[in-house]
Design a protein around this nucleic acid. Structure first.
Length: 838
RNA sequence: GCCGCCGUGGCGAAAUCGGUAAACGCGCAGGACUUAAAAUCCUGUGUCGCCAAAAGCGACGUCUCGGUUCGAGUCCGAGCGGCGGCACCA
């Protein structure tokens, strides 16, 4: 079919129209074809390019709950674009996927319907995996893992035993966060606003024994490591906040008439001379000991009251400050005065030393407390701005008054001097405290990794626990009768499985019982990224050589809601793995991308309960996976929340159809109607300009602007008709280039277009083309011409024009604004703008 | 209370370094094609003013006020609004 520039419009439009205009790209036929092709070629397997640089792209381990939602789609699409681009750039890309498949949802579902989690889980995984394939995600499925399988969780147990040897695991009796609905303990990180992170139930306080990791041993490393990560500021600051490093001093107050001393923590040692009483947490070990007989009953009553009310009131908002006098007196270490010792409900036993010195003049809480109980208020810091009015605490730094030898010093100087003096007298020292607490990981549930511990009355009468030897791992979960064992109440389910509980002691061989509790599932996701390196290793969690090759993760993608949960735990675990000699990297992920929420049609966050969930299956069925991917990428930058828009989806579908018609026109020899004849160079120029913008968009995660650049190329091609045979060849090249540069975003469509255009090479691994600098250089440059900062005209000059030449052209362009006004200054910004100041 | 982020058309957004604000998409309007519609293609689309209209010209315009600068969406200060995190942390 002949088509040409010189013919009448009718003919041209027939060329484009008759065969091509009605032909639609059918994603439903094309996409499965390429998915099958990719699978059969093993194109996405890592390790094939041993001499290439590696690129590890990873998305957060999903919990497969059956059907995928748009939040997943967004996360994985971002990762897939980077993985595909990486492959085309020649990297040895590691892009794996697996399943976080232990945990409460499956167990709770089992309680409801009686089906064992091990039946449901593989089905859910299958379904989720199908969605991944249907969306064209380029995973290396040979590395797939599932955390519920013994070959995975045995390494959780192995780590546990190793960490026990290193004293990074210990058993403690502590106040724990108990979720009555999940019927299990939660770590501090898993309590949000006093409620369970998973189900939102109000958390209770209980005191029961539990296993914990000494994550606090890594406080400094966790804080220090943050500085060399390319992580979003938001996440970094949340982690810093959570770690909560605080510099100050320990100071010792001797107790009058007793050998005991009260150690307090303060960040304001400069206010020591204003400490007019000391307050202990109600459950402080000295509380009862110090109480005088007259006050004993009152102290008892107060303790009971606080223990009962604690959580509820703290949640209900501001807790009324309450306290009780112990009757005891303590001695200010430097001032030498005796001050009363109180208990108060706002002092926390878990932070610092569980005791504080109260300086009501300079701390608002202490001020309120002192007012309520009529305690002495004594000013020791002067603001320098007139006398202190005494209506509220003055909490800023200032100059010391009424502070003995330290009077006259600035607060900053005094903090150092007072701490040093206390230290010299053996009554204190500088100190650093942290908000971070150890990670309690015992869970009173069934569907998780058994803790490999046995209790033997003979060898271990104190029930400290004896680890199961390495060669006896894994300790597998027993098969159970769901109805009988999973009741969702009472003791840990495994405790009811008598046959499993009964075992032999590894030390004496005598009868022993197992630990019935299981591990927090956050352990599973703390090291899975390393298991992907050597998923089939049977003798160790992963191979050192693989770790050296592929760690750290280059780009890690997931939601910001894990900022102080998973993202903290897996940093901790990586440091432990490094200390165990398993790898040299001390940080798991160099770069982190936290993707925004996908909201529903109603503008609310998608959730089942709101009934506004849109399934990717809907879009795949209607328009195909590529449209779903384009929509989600084009909506805005990755970190930003995005709104659902059926219209924008239609727009992306329209865009692909528009490209398709161009491709078909090229193959059939037609041109778009109303196109203007163009030469070869013009086609090349447009294509390379787009390529440049797409390349830089891919580097900077500006996927929306990268796609916009391709759209502009398409718009340009619609206005151009090849003027001659050379131009026809150039248009062919431009369309091929288009298929290449769009392929990370819309891989199925591009593979098909590529083939239509007659190319036979594998597009998914085709080398990303270099931008031809000669083609993207402008021939003429349009300068904006300003007079006194206002744009008054434009000047077109050849690209290489010198300043004087540009100035001459510019003067001509704005002559009317310059007449009669002497030019005081001339500003020349190459390639952009000139400005006259008159 | 403390810490962090963000305010740009009717909407989603774009704008390496301070250099022609609003690219691209959506929506809307007009036109072409069609018996008609859909689909498709083309054109227009920040606000206001001058003008019968168009062309054209001008003023204003990136939350508000102020500052630095020849020039500010971008830098600085103050404020307002929104979002997120932590929160009796001593």
């Amino acid at each position: 079919m002949a088509g040409g520039a010189g013919e009448g419009r009718r003919d041209r439009s027939r060329d484009f129209g008759a065969t091509v205009m009605n032909e639609r790209y059918e994603a439903s036929a094309v996409e499965p074809k390429w998915q099958t092709h990719w699978k059969s070629c093993g194109l996405f397997h890592a390790g094939a390019r041993a001499d290439a640089k590696k690129l590890y792209v990873l998305e957060m381990l999903p919990y497969p709950s059956g059907e995928m939602h748009m939040g997943h789609v967004r996360c994985y699409t971002l990762g897939d674009v980077l993985a595909r681009y990486g492959r085309m750039r020649g990297f040895d890309v590691l892009h794996p996927m697996g399943w976080d498949s232990f945990g409460l949802p499956a167990e709770n579902a089992a309680i409801k319907d009686g089906r064992h989690p091990s039946e449901r889980t593989p089905a859910n995984i299958e379904s989720f995996k199908k969605d991944c394939v249907a969306l064209g995600f380029s995973y290396d499925w040979t590395r797939e893992i599932a955390t519920y399988k013994p070959e995975y969780y045995r390494w959780n147990q192995w780590f546990f035993v190793k960490m026990l040897e290193k004293d990074l695991v210990y058993r403690r009796r502590a106040k724990v966060n108990w979720c009555p609905s999940c019927n299990t303990v939660l770590a501090n990180e898993q309590v949000e606003d006093g409620a369970c992170w998973r189900c939102g139930s109000r958390v209770e306080e209980r005191e029961i024994p539990e296993w914990a990791f000494r994550i606090t041993k890594y406080s400094d490393a966790l804080l220090g490591g943050l500085s060399d990560l390319q992580w979003p500021e938001r996440v970094v600051s949340m982690q810093k906040n959570w770690l909560g490093r605080s510099e100050g001093a320990f100071l010792d107050f001797a107790v009058v008439g007793s050998a005991e001393k009260i150690r307090v923590f303060t960040t304001r040692a400069d206010t020591l001379f204003g400490a007019t009483y000391v307050v202990l947490a109600p459950d402080h070990p000295l509380a009862l000991k110090l109480a005088t007989s007259a006050q004993h009953a009152a102290v008892r009553a107060f303790q009971t009251k606080v223990a009962a009310s604690n959580r509820e009131d703290r949640l209900a908002g501001r807790l009324e400050k309450e306290g009780v006098f112990t009757g005891a007196q303590a001695v200010n270490p430097l001032a030498g005065e005796s001050v009363p010792v109180w208990l108060a409900n706002f002092v926390l036993s878990g932070y610092g030393t569980g005791a504080v010195m109260s300086v009501p003049a300079h701390d608002q809480r202490d001020f309120e407390f002192a007012k309520k109980y009529d305690l002495t208020i004594s000013q020791v810091v002067d603001s320098g701005a007139g006398a202190w009015k005494g209506d509220a605490a003055f909490t800023d730094d200032g100059v010391l008054v009424n502070s003995g030898a330290f009077t006259g010093k600035s607060s900053a100087e005094a903090r150092v001097a007072i701490t040093a003096e206390a230290a010299r007298r053996g009554l204190g020292e500088t100190a650093v405290t942290w908000h971070l607490r150890d990670w309690g990981f015992s869970r009173q549930r069934y569907w998780g990794t058994p803790i490999p511990i046995v209790y033997c009355e003979r060898c271990d009468p104190e029930r400290r626990g004896i680890p199961v030897p390495e060669d006896k791992l894994p300790v597998e979960l027993p098969h159970i009768d769901v109805r009988e064992v999973l009741t969702g109440k009472g003791e840990p389910p495994l405790a009811k499985v008598k046959a499993w509980m009964a075992t032999t002691c590894p030390k004496c061989g005598g009868p022993a019982t197992r630990e019935p509790e299981t591990m927090d599932t956050f352990i599973d996701s703390s090291w899975y990224f390393a298991r992907y390196l050597s998923p089939h290793e049977a003798t160790r969690p992963f191979a050192r050589a693989d770790a050296d090759r592929y760690l750290p993760i280059d780009v890690y993608i997931g939601g910001p809601e894990h900022a102080v949960l998973h993202l903290l735990y897996f940093r901790f675990w990586t440091k432990v793995m490094a200390d165990l000699g398993l790898c040299s990297e001390r940080e798991p992920a160099r770069r982190l991308v936290t993707q925004g929420i996908v909201k529903g049609r109603d503008g609310e966050k998608m959730s089942k309960s709101k009934g506004n969930v849109v399934s990717p299956r809907e879009i795949i069925a209607r328009h195909g996976a590529d449209v779903a991917r384009l929509f989600i990428l084009f909506a805005g930058p990755p970190e930003k929340d995005m709104d659902w828009s059926d219209e924008q989806i239609e727009g992306q579908a329209r865009f692909l159809q528009r490209v398709w018609r161009l491709v078909r026109a090229q193959v059939e020899g037609g041109a778009p109607p109303d196109a203007i004849p163009a030469k070869a160079d013009e086609f090349r120029r447009e294509a390379h300009r787009a390529l440049k913008r797409v390349s830089s968009g891919l580097e900077s995660l500006g996927f929306n602007t990268a796609i916009a650049a391709v759209m502009e190329l398409v718009n340009a091609l619609y206005k151009m008709s090849p003027a001659d045979d050379a131009a026809r060849v150039a248009r062919q090249e431009a369309l091929e280039l288009l298929a290449v540069m769009l392929s990370p975003f819309a891989p199925h469509f591009c593979a098909e277009a590529w083939q239509q255009l007659g190319r036979t090479e594998e597009l998914a691994t085709f080398a990303w083309p270099a931008v031809d600098p000669a083609l993207v250089a402008d021939e003429t440059i349009t300068y904006a011409v300003q007079v006194n900062g206002k744009v008054r005209g434009q000047a077109n000059v050849p690209a290489g024009a010198a300043e004087a030449e540009v100035r001459a052209a510019a003067e001509q362009a704005v002559a009317a604004h310059l007449t009669g006004k002497p030019v005081k200054k001339f500003i020349f910004v190459p390639k952009r703008l000139v400005s006259f100041v008159v």
